[in-house]
Amino acid sequence: MPRRFLQRYMPNPETLRRQRSLRFMGHLIGDPGLWVLSRRTVANAFSVGLFSAMLPIPFQMVVAAFGAWVLRCNLPLSVGLVWITNPLTMPLIFYGNYRIGAWLMDTPAREAPTRVSTRWVAERMADILPALALGSVVSAIVFAVLGNLLVRLLWRWHISRSWKQRAMRRRLRRLDMDD
């Protein structure tokens, strides 16, 4: 993952610190260690963000921010990745987590209703919750590990490719000088 590409889309920490709604987190936002873009910090941020995104809990962004602080990884990436489970994707992802949990518990999974309502969820919460919780935790762990490994591999591949390109440019320059 190229550092310059990620820096282009990163928010400015000073701008965030000045926002009234984020002042209570000023010490966290202002910590320069949480804005570093290295292979380790980005890979761990993917783990934290994907793990938090798969959990069916409120305040996923707070969980991701706390995880970034604990693991000393990139804060904006951790928090931003939580938005994988946005209002459009959340029902599909959490239903998939429920199906995985039901499969792991070896219980028949309920079919998704044609129309989801809070009443439907409240009536079936006792049946759904154990499978949803298990499936969500398993999915969170699997996606966190896979995300971390994938970022590390992509980062290494990118660095290796750039080294080879630099070596090729040096060889071409030497050949031009010899002529």
Rank of each mutant, 00 (worst) to 15 (best):
Phe66Cys: 06
Asp31Tyr: 11
Leu75Ala: 02
Met61Pro: 01
Arg119Phe: 12
Ala133Ser: 12
Met54Asp: 06
Pro58Thr: 00
Val42Pro: 02
Ile128Ser: 02
Gly67Thr: 06
Phe66Thr: 11
Ser38Gln: 05
Gly147Lys: 05
Glu111Ile: 05
Gln60Met: 09
Leu75Arg: 02
Glu123Gly: 02
Gly80Ile: 07
Tyr98Thr: 04
Ile84Val: 15
Ala65His: 07
Ile57Asp: 02
Trp69Asp: 08
Phe143Trp: 15
Trp103Glu: 04
Ser47Asn: 06
Val63Pro: 00
Ala126Gln: 09
Val137Asp: 03
Ala126Thr: 08
Phe46Ala: 15
Pro32Val: 12
Arg99Leu: 15
Ile57Met: 14
Phe46Arg: 03
Ile84Pro: 01
Leu129Lys: 07
Thr41Lys: 11
Leu92Gln: 04
Pro58Trp: 03
Asn148Thr: 09
Gly30Cys: 08
Gly96Ser: 13
Phe46Gln: 04
Ala53Tyr: 06
Met54Trp: 13
Gly147Ile: 08
Leu71Pro: 00
Phe46Met: 14
Thr85Val: 08
Thr41Asp: 14
Val36Trp: 00
Asp31His: 10
Arg119Asp: 14
Arg110Asp: 03
Val82Tyr: 03
Val62Ala: 15
Val145Gly: 08
Met90Gln: 13
Ala53Asn: 12
Leu104Asn: 07
Phe59Met: 10
Leu134Phe: 04
Ile57Lys: 02
Pro58Met: 02
Ala68Val: 03
Ser117Lys: 04
Pro32Glu: 15
Val116Ser: 11
Arg72Val: 05
Gly33Ala: 04
Arg124Leu: 11
Ala122Ser: 14
Val116Gly: 05
